[in-house]
Design a protein around this nucleic acid. Structure first.
Lengths: 339, 339
DNA sequence: TTGAAAGCGCTAACAC
DNA sequence: GTGTTAGCGCTTTCAA
């Protein structure tokens, strides 16, 4: 278990000061006007000794850890793990490494993660904020910590954010169902004030309104994050069996959609004949459902790339803490939406 | 943008040395015999100033960063992101945070990630090794870095590892098909020497042999990690259409399985009548396939928990670098395997 | 019971 | 061109 070699080891081996070694190994020999042969010698010894810089020490000194913190709702959700993958790649391209954590949509977890990451001196944060995290975010702003919100924004707060055009996506999705002849279109969404959900709901409502469909309140079902499956079963029983009045549904996320499809499958509802379906997000499941599911495809690559880009801009420039990127969302039409 | 408060700030505010503050805030007032009222005062001021320790500085000094590095093949693969979630939780329970990276089954990426993480002074690594990474792993051992291999081991190398009982799982899966009357059972596996795949192949072969089924060589298809879909289409065309001789398949991973199911769906093969299927791993897709897929369920919780446990043991004790945990795998029987 | 100070590995201002 | 040195924030030994 040989100790790691430090600048000092190289310096003493070559017979120079650590300063010179530092300059050379950081490519600053020009600025520091280090002799050419000296530089060569230092590099040679560094290689011989297989020198690896201690990034912790570097970070302490420079105040830059070249580390980003990624806080998602749940890394095991394919939506977030796909983003994580893209973020990882973009970060690496820029010399950054990524710490991750899952908030589980919980305020306390979110706070702890932010805190932990800040204590580890991350250079910036990519956050999918949870409901009620307004204070936490405000606090970051006050402290001047670079961050970017992803997937969702917070009401009444100007921050860096990268989101999709949820309003229009939901509007178009609902409209598609309307155009295809469905009359009573429900939506199942999460019960949260987070903007992504609010915008999806608004887009949905707007489309109904434009088509002069009433009873919107009854058609919009809100479910909590916990005990999702039970709530969805309940909701679908009501919508499809008991009150037998709806003929289409918009699912506001992939998690809602997948749970719902299980129930619909089980109830042997005919899609799209008896029930039209459009869902947000993507899933392999959508391909395998007996009626391939029409969905709103988020451009994950664009979201992840932009999140990193916006964050790095903020890291490199205090002032750039207010960039809002809205990515258009496509709708992929397949069988489940009818016609 | 108020600067972070340091021990020094508290010290000067209280009028004591940083040493005292450090003791108190680390709960070492007993050992250091700090006065009770002094301790209270320090704690009070720390709270007032909202002191947050700089973990980078702590890490530099102590040599312990309380950070783990997680290297998986691909974080966007649900198998690995599920593990990541569990590892994250276990790590947090023990005061650790997790850096992650995806190797993409590439040797160079793997090397870079290990290097990057070591330079960041992680206390230990959880690695799903890629093919040919023997040297990299050996190097870690030589340096005395705590690590644990997960999901796969390396041939002829004693290390910490947490794997499932792939041999018996594959044996049982194949046997199930045999018992259910299938005669020509193929396997599609990855073309790699990594032990998890080798063991799955051995278990499969053994079951065939025990049942006196010949032609094993022809029935075992190996695919590369790249251009998976094309290879699988090709393979299935051969197995199912051209040579029309097989009546069952064992899929060696979820990724192979999902791609294959798409093709099988498309070819309108009747499962389980014309083709029996068993797959390794889990997927939502298995529930939605028209014939729910029988699968070998890995106990993700056990794998993740044990990986962290074994790693932490090694971190706390140099000698414990040789723990091998084999987790039994259950088989979840549904329709696709027949009878 | 408390303080002074060294030092973890590195950078960079400054001196020579 | 090259070396000295202070210091990033923290822990811990030793002295008082």
């Amino acid at each position: 278990m040989n100790k790691r070699v430090s600048l000092k080891d190289i310096a003493s081996r070559v017979g120079v000061s650590t300063a010179l070694v530092s300059y050379v190994l950081n490519g600053k020999e020009k600025e520091a006007r280090v002799g050419l042969e000296m530089a060569g010698k230092i590099r040679k010894v560094a290689k011989e000794l297989n020198y690896q810089p201690n990034l912790i020490a570097k970070g302490l000194k420079s105040g830059q850890t070249k580390t980003l913190g990624l806080i998602v709702a749940d890394i095991s959700n394919p939506f977030f793990s796909s983003l994580a993958r893209i973020i990882e790649i973009e970060a690496k391209k820029n010399g950054y490494t990524v710490l991750f954590g899952s908030s589980d949509e919980d305020l306390e977890n979110s706070k702890n993660l932010i805190n932990t990451f800040l204590n580890r001196q991350v250079d910036g944060l990519i956050i999918t904020p949870v409901e009620g995290s307004d204070e936490q975010i405000k606090d970051l702003q006050k402290k001047g910590i670079p961050f970017v919100l992803m997937d969702r924004g917070l009401e009444k707060r100007k921050t860096n954010k990268v989101i999709i055009d949820n309003y229009n996506a939901a509007f178009n999705a609902t409209n598609l169902l309307i155009k295809n002849g469905y009359k009573k279109i429900a939506m199942i969404a999460y019960d949260t004030r987070l903007t992504h959900m609010q915008h999806r709901i608004e887009g949905y409502k707007k489309a109904l309104k434009a088509a002069k469909i009433k009873d919107v309140a009854e058609l919009l079902i809100k479910v909590k994050f916990v005990a999702l499956q039970e709530q969805i079963e309940q909701a679908l029983q009501n919508l499809l069996i008991k009150n037998k009045k709806i003929d289409a549904i918009v699912f506001a996320t992939n998690s809602i959609s997948i749970q719902s499809l299980k129930v619909i499958h089980h109830l042997k509802i005919k899609v799209p004949q008896e029930l039209g379906i459009v869902s947000f997000d993507e899933s392999e499941v959508f391909d395998f459902f007996y009626s391939p599911v029409t969905y709103i495809k988020q451009d994950m690559q664009a979201i992840g790339e932009n999140a990193v880009k916006v964050l790095l801009q903020n890291i490199n420039d205090d002032k750039k803490n207010n960039t809002e990127i809205v990515i258009p969302a496509a709708i992929v039409i397949r069988e489940s939406s009818g016609k």
